[in-house]
Design a protein around this nucleic acid. Structure first.
Lengths: 118, 118
DNA sequence: ATCACATATGAACAGTTGTTCAAGTGTAAG
DNA sequence: CTTACACTTGAACAACTGTTCATATGTGAT
């Protein structure tokens, strides 16, 4: 966090580029939110849940069964996904159905897949 | 991980959907790799590094200066980014320049930004 | 060879995260 | 109002992650 001058001499730093980049950086809050969003994608369980919802809406119980995990674990993760506005839910009697919130989920996961399959 | 039957009765589970979804799920390894990839995006420092590299290639020292962080911290994170094949590097004398590996980075970050700005 | 600089790396430590377990809602049916 | 089911939630604990600090490597100049 300090002592940078010790490593990096004035005359070495590529001042022009540094100055240029410094200009068009999104603000800290936005970058933080962005990282938070990707954190949500960065867990196998949540990725699997999202994938499972690609096809159709499902209830908590269905998802737990599909992923062979406890209903509680799934519920916790659905909450995270919901807070990130990646999924939404609707209630039908005792059952709660979850579904993908919008198409960004598909695009982001699609691009990710493309990347790892290169 | 067990006791599902206790919560979820045979007659309730939406068997048709469950069966259908079960068919076209990517294999476990792929889903794991995908989560690993997004984990890399899920950190403020790494997101900031990627953003900084949107404009032009930069050396470790430049990045550390721009983000006001230690050279060591940046170096550690660049390694993570490199392992995920999100950045690449070239050496020029004592200096090592880092740059974005391909356009997926831009697309993924772009989509992420769109999502949080809704 | 020796020195200085740019970068890399290993160990360690605090902070975060995901699951389980137990207990809590909410809803429909008897 | 009681019971049963679908789901939610809070606490706790192990596992993981990011930074720091100290040290190591690589390169070029003297």
């Amino acid at each position: 966090m300090q002592e940078r001058a010790e490593y990096c001499q004035e005359h070495h730093v590529h001042a022009d580029r540094v100055a240029h980049v410094k200009g068009d950086m999104p603000d800290e809050v936005r970058l933080y939110d962005l990282a938070e969003l990707f954190k949500v994608f960065g867990d196998t369980t949540r990725i699997r849940i999202l994938y499972v919802l690609f096809e159709s809406e499902l209830c908590v119980c269905d998802i737990a069964q599909l992923l062979d995990m406890s209903q509680s674990a799934i519920s916790h993760q659905l909450r995270v996904l919901k807070q990130a506005r990646l999924v939404r839910s609707r209630r039908e009697g005792k059952t709660v159905f979850y579904f993908l919130a919008d198409d960004h989920v598909r695009t982001i996961i699609g691009q990710g897949m493309e990347h790892i399959e290169e």
